[in-house]
Amino acid sequence: MVTASGFTHTPATRAFLALVVSSSVIVSILSLKPYLPLKIAPHLWPYLQFWRIATCQLAYSSSTELLFSTAILYQMRVLERVWGTRKFASFALAGYGLCMIGIVSVAMVLKIVSVGWWGYIPSGPSALVIAIVAVWRREIPRLAGFKILLDDDEQRLRAGTARGLELSDKWTVYMLATQLALSQFPFGLLPAVVGWCVGNAWTEELVPGGLVRWRIPAWILGENARRKTGRGHYEGLRRRLQEEDHDGMREVTTAGVATMTRSQEGRRGVLGGVGRYFTSGS
């Protein structure tokens, strides 16, 4: 499925990965890690720090989670090539908002159910990364599979019925996603579960408001400028091809007329000779 190397034709994935890495590094350098995680109490109540709801998913406070997240995002560039930059960027932006609302809502419910024990949300866009993985699992087919044998019986091995664990070429991404979800166990499970639900709801078109069909404006991605540049770049080639087609048709028409003229002259010559033969005989 990967037809190009690196981040070729994937500007949205490249920008997303650069944003996550740069924001995490800046937060670490400026010692702002305590401002990243979100606690229902006391951050939302009684301190009313609602800005943490949007900023808790912007950067990681752990280098391990950052490593797993960047490795996953690098593999997700295939989804952008299949979908296109505009659709992928629209999904990332809408998924960010859905994950943010879902995480905070579920955390509030868990805090009430657990009698105040569960109210911590770790930092980082893990929910959005897992949502992209969920969509990638549905949209990108597997290319190969293999089997890890768990049985050493020679007869079963020869017959091909040995027990084993069947895996596909996607197992590395699933392993990284699982490790990302278990990085801050058990609190890291909440963003992972919410992101997985958001990704599957997106593929099944169960999200509200028709967000699946929503697209960000093209001018934000510079697609209008690229289209204009492309038209200007290929305008001369298109005009030259049209002129060549016109000249070719004219040459074909001229050759056809000349052929028809010669054939008519040939027919006239034959008929004239036959006429002169009978005339002279008379």
Rank of each mutant, 00 (worst) to 15 (best):
P191Q: 01
S126M: 02
A134H: 06
W219Y: 12
V20P: 08
L66V: 07
R238I: 10
P34I: 00
K228C: 07
R81P: 00
A177F: 02
T279I: 09
R239H: 08
W118Q: 07
P11D: 01
S123G: 14
A12R: 02
G209D: 02
I140K: 02
W171K: 07
G124M: 09
G119W: 04
A144F: 01
V173Q: 04
T55K: 12
P122L: 02
R77D: 03
Y60D: 01
V109S: 06
A18V: 11
H43Q: 06
W219E: 11
L182H: 03
S22A: 15
T203F: 08
K33R: 13
M100G: 12
H246R: 14
T172F: 14
Q75S: 13
L157N: 14
Y74T: 02
R138M: 15
R52W: 04
S126P: 04
S263C: 08
V257T: 05
N224Y: 05
E244K: 05
T178N: 11
A192Q: 01
K39F: 10
V198C: 11
S24G: 07
L157I: 13
S69K: 03
K39V: 03
T161W: 02
L150K: 04
V252P: 00
T279H: 07
C197F: 12
M1R: 08
G266D: 15
V135D: 01
V27P: 06
P186S: 06
V212H: 13
I29P: 03
F68T: 00
S5H: 08
Y120F: 15
Y174P: 00
V270I: 15
L150N: 05
S61Y: 02
W196C: 13
I140R: 06
T70F: 01
M1I: 11
N224L: 13
A107P: 00
Q75G: 06
L66Q: 06
T55S: 15
W45N: 14
R77P: 00
Q264T: 06
A192V: 05
V194L: 09
I121W: 06
D151E: 15
I26D: 04
V113M: 08
V20D: 00
R226H: 04
C99T: 01
Y74C: 00
W171I: 15
I103D: 09
G232Y: 04
K147A: 06
V2M: 14
W51V: 07
A258C: 07
G248A: 09
G210C: 11
K39N: 05
R238M: 12
G269H: 08
A54F: 14
R215S: 08
F187V: 14
T229M: 11
I148A: 07
W202L: 00
N224E: 13
V252A: 15
G232K: 11
A59C: 12
S282F: 07
R14K: 13
A127S: 15
I29S: 03
I103R: 00
G256Y: 07
L30N: 01
N224V: 11
W196T: 07
A258T: 08
G266Q: 11
L17T: 10
L211E: 05
K228F: 03
V2R: 13
T203Y: 10
P37K: 07
A127T: 02
T64G: 09
